[in-house]
């Protein structure tokens, strides 16, 4: 199943991926990460692996988009 792997400690919580996702699959969590941010988390069945979150994210390694496999 399509999904997004979040490297939680690399997220700076800018929210751009949350705004960019056409299916609203991402949201900011409540836990505070190593950088002091409430990192984004993925929780959805709707992901199409379109990659919008990946491209708007300014951090190279925070988001990895997976297609198909669970």
């Amino acid at each position: 199943m399509n999904h997004v792997v979040v490297s939680t400690d690399l997220c700076k919580a800018c929210r751009l991926c949350v705004e960019a996702c056409p299916k609203h699959c991402l949201e900011l969590g409540s836990a505070i990460n190593a950088l002091g941010h409430q990192a984004v988390r993925f929780d959805s069945q709707e992901c199409t692996a379109c990659g919008m979150c990946f491209y708007v994210c300014p951090e190279p390694g925070t988001l990895t988009v997976m297609k198909g496999t669970a």
């Binding site: 400690d9 690399l10 950088l35 951090e59």
Partner: peptide
């Protein structure tokens, strides 16, 4: 720093990271 060598020095939401990635 932690996480060691995995993040950029750019501020949250900076455009540079996106252009770098492209």
């Amino acid at each position: 720093d932690f996480p060691a060598g995995e993040t950029t020095h750019y501020c949250p939401g900076c455009g540079h990271g996106t252009v770098h990635k492209l």
